Amino acid sequence: MKNKPLLLEILWILGCTIFTTIIGFALFGKTIFGDYVDLNLHDTYFVIANQHFLIWFFIVFSFIVYFTKENRHSFKRRLPFLIFLILGLGFSILIAKASPFFLFLPEIGKNGWTVYPPLSVHNSATTDILPQEGFFSMLLTPINYLILLQIIVIALMLFAAYKYGKSSNN
């Protein structure tokens, strides 16, 4: 059957789509099929469209599935390799689009934190919750985690390209 590899990849993508929809339904319930999801984080209120969650879930899950699936085959097959690269490129673009959002979050180790109720009301034992100054506290920021995640995704894509090139030369 000539179209069997294409049909198999369509079934894998369809399976990833169904799984991410089930996970979205398990996390958010019926609201995942509504217009938006409300998140209340500390004193900030976010309203996020549901398709953004589903796109993130789908790309991250599919990237992991295709990496493990194709790593077993040493990246010898062309169509799954191209799907993996497209998912990796989409993953990198999503990380780049999410990075400006995390720039607005207060960074650990910087001044400007507001703690409610003010710490002057509490005794001195509760002042330990303030962020610590130092080298590691500057590294442990959300934006740095996203940059590290993007470096890992690009490194996995380069590893896959190396394996594909090595297997196609033989």
Results as ranks from 00 to 15, higher is better:
residue 57 F to P: 04
residue 126 T to Q: 12
residue 93 I to F: 13
residue 52 H to I: 14
residue 141 T to F: 01
residue 130 L to Y: 09
residue 126 T to P: 01
residue 89 L to G: 14
residue 114 T to G: 06
residue 20 T to L: 00
residue 75 F to P: 00
residue 80 P to A: 00
residue 90 G to L: 11
residue 161 A to H: 02
residue 73 H to N: 14
residue 140 L to A: 09
residue 65 V to L: 09
residue 120 S to F: 03
residue 66 Y to D: 03
residue 140 L to Q: 14
residue 33 F to I: 06
residue 53 F to A: 02
residue 90 G to P: 01
residue 136 F to C: 08
residue 30 K to G: 13
residue 114 T to I: 12
residue 63 F to S: 03
residue 17 T to S: 05
residue 160 A to T: 09
residue 83 I to S: 01
residue 33 F to M: 04
residue 41 L to A: 04
residue 44 T to Y: 09
residue 154 I to T: 12
residue 10 I to A: 08
residue 80 P to T: 02
residue 132 Q to K: 14
residue 50 N to H: 01
residue 70 E to D: 14
residue 117 P to R: 03
residue 95 I to F: 13
residue 108 I to N: 07
residue 78 R to I: 15
residue 14 L to S: 11
residue 60 V to A: 11
residue 133 E to Y: 04
residue 122 H to T: 04
residue 39 L to F: 05
residue 78 R to S: 13
residue 146 L to C: 12
residue 65 V to C: 08
residue 40 N to M: 11
residue 170 N to G: 14
residue 4 K to H: 00
residue 2 K to D: 02
residue 74 S to F: 06
residue 70 E to H: 05
residue 50 N to W: 01
residue 16 C to A: 04
residue 105 L to I: 10
residue 33 F to H: 00
residue 104 F to R: 15
residue 44 T to R: 15
residue 165 G to D: 03
residue 39 L to Q: 10
residue 127 T to W: 11
residue 144 N to T: 12
residue 133 E to Q: 13
residue 155 A to L: 15
residue 57 F to Q: 11
residue 107 E to D: 14
residue 58 F to L: 14
residue 27 L to K: 11
residue 113 W to K: 15
residue 18 I to G: 05
residue 42 H to G: 07
residue 26 A to E: 02
residue 99 S to H: 00
residue 41 L to S: 08
residue 155 A to F: 08
residue 42 H to A: 12
residue 101 F to M: 12
